[in-house]
Design a protein around this nucleic acid. Structure first.
Lengths: 348, 348
DNA sequence: ATCATGGGGGCCTTTAATGAG
DNA sequence: GCTCATTAAAGGCCCCCATGA
């Protein structure tokens, strides 16, 4: 037992990796028998099995997943390509993906793209093709797939989150448009004449959808459409927008494209002495856990990130098991408005 | 060429996977030459190379990473075991790990543990051993490794984040204690007689360290140590603590173990008509991006999650390259206090 | 002598076919 | 004829060495 315990047995480098053959030799059987024991197959008498297990323990044997994958042709791993984990939505979606994948016996491999240039995206897709994954989930966020400039490698099982590419890929998305409609209608129903909007980044799908729906609801209702204020999801950009919106006296309601920007709005209005909701109503989007503890608690659109992740895993496993490419089409996860204390009828 | 073209050519199932041999056949060369082209090795004349590349494109060839891993004995993948991605700290650390790993040519595989029972942790470690990873980073958060009940498999390269197991494993951690000391001293320096504390979950390492340091600073300064209020990182638990703290008239300063609980405190104090910072000073921990936009902007301890992730990758790659086990020891990433508007001298 | 290419073997596991009791 | 174990081959890739120009 001198060998055990990790670092540097003097005079002898620890063997890099214990193979089945090593176990077989120690147990005095063939490697075939070891394989059977390892995979719980029948045809090994109890005493032999016990011997083999003992040898495995003694040597600290772990099956080589490369060889196994080579044999079986699959890795039990799903790749996830994304731009950033730092947004609440992404990290929660990824967490749900990881959890549901684990429940099905799959691990997930993360491929981050730090700067979303076309080269980087293509590079990630290429690398992904070479990676030890059976399928890929792409969390897009931005406009690349639907422009056709970026192509996912053919013959790879793919599910895309948050994209317009539903005509070519299997897509799962939150029902952004409906969520935004609920938000804007809620404000109009309260009696506001119109609703201002702080957008997400211009390249963002989700942001675009929310802005489109905002505009559409106002137009359908025959209300004036104020100019959109451009944000970048950060609280800071919401704060900047809030400082602008604090001036026009006719701004009584704002729909922010996410909760963090709404937080920035709240602070800006507070600094300028405007009361939320009595002077200005604010609605956010996402329903991050903190939103209920903003001052005042934020009315916002709840997104079910966990469900998005869940459906991604379902779809991708379906593709793997069916063996074919994914059916194009978009699967929409519903949203719902959560009314808290940041919205009220306009004063007067 | 009937075989090509993705989904369901009638009558013929598409070949599962294109091998080097297939490419070689189409290009009229040996598979060895294909290998050379694939890896950018020299010794292939331009015309041949072009032919091979054409054949690769035509067939949609992607190298089989299982075979490659089998050959090389490594996967270029690092496993990350964690409990949750939903905390800011974890997701930012993981993002940094993924980014730095990618820069070194490694992908990362996520193994989530939904409920941190001992069985689940052991199971994850076992599975990790069989997984296609070259090393493992464990983001522990809770007390399991140092109790000795859970053992990481020997012979696996491991780096642990946030743990007391520095005597046995290679550990990277934020300097929790120093951060907490800075926070408490800042409040004492402002003239507060003592400082109350809202803790993290009791099982959390980080939480324990911060609470210990809080207590130690008060004792060293000869100040009374108020009873700790137990939170669970959530804004809700901070809110609950805030409602309690709003009553004792001698509470003029609170140190919350993270920013979200601080957010809950701010709301509770606001509801009770207490002004922050004039009636009560509040300090948080983490410096999440939103903290600067709380009302009022939060004084808090900045954690460098990116640096933690970076060092994890460095250490783990070092282990892989050196081939040995990791040197036990703890690598501390410094913290710094960021003073904003939620702290002030006590009234009167 | 240099340089482009091809053949053979091995990495480790699993499964089918074959052998021994 | 039946149980259990062994041998052999396959899976895709890359290195070593050999071949031919």
């Amino acid at each position: 037992m001198v060998e055990r315990g990790g670092s540097g047995v003097p005079g002898g480098r620890r063997k890099q990796r214990v193979s089945m053959a090593d176990v077989a030799k120690l147990a005095g059987v063939s490697s075939q028998t070891v394989s059977r024991v390892s995979n719980g197959h029948s045809g090994v008498v109890a005493s032999t099995r016990e011997q083999v297990l003992a040898a495995m323990r003694e040597l600290g044997y772990r099956p080589n997943s490369a060889a196994r994958a080579l044999r079986y042709g699959q890795f039990n791993t799903i790749g996830v390509i994304l731009f950033s984990l730092s947004s609440t939505g992404n990290s929660r979606t990824v967490e749900a993906i990881a959890t549901h994948a684990a429940a099905e016996g799959y691990a997930i491999t993360l491929i981050p793209i730090d700067v979303p240039t076309q080269d980087n995206v293509l590079g990630a897709f290429t690398r992904m093709g070479e990676l030890a994954v059976d399928a890929v989930i792409v969390i897009m966020e931005i406009h690349l797939l639907d422009t056709g400039t970026v192509q996912l490698p053919p013959g790879v099982h793919v599910v895309v989150v948050d994209s317009d590419a539903g005509d070519r890929y299997s897509v799962v998305d939150t029902d952004q448009a409906d969520g935004a409609r609920q938000a804007v209608r809620h404000l109009l129903d309260l009696g506001h004449r119109t609703v201002w909007h702080v957008t997400g980044p211009q390249a963002s799908f989700a942001g675009q959808r929310r802005a489109q729906a905002w505009r559409a609801v106002l137009q359908e209702a025959g209300r004036p459409v104020p100019p959109a204020l451009y944000g970048d999801w950060s609280a800071e950009s919401g704060y900047a927008a809030g400082l602008v919106l604090a001036d026009p006296p006719d701004c009584t309601a704002v729909f922010a494209a996410n909760d963090q920007m709404a937080l920035g709005l709240l602070r800006a209005f507070h600094e300028r002495g405007l009361s939320v909701p009595y002077d200005v109503s604010v609605v956010g989007f996402d329903d991050i856990p903190d939103a209920a503890f903003f001052v005042p608690p934020l009315t916002t659109v709840h997104q079910d990130f966990a469900e998005v992740g869940h459906r991604c895993v379902q779809k991708v496993l379906q593709q793997i098991r069916a063996g074919g490419g994914g059916q194009p089409g978009t699967d929409l996860v519903p949203t719902r408005l959560v009314v808290r204390d940041s919205t009220a009828p306009p004063r007067g």
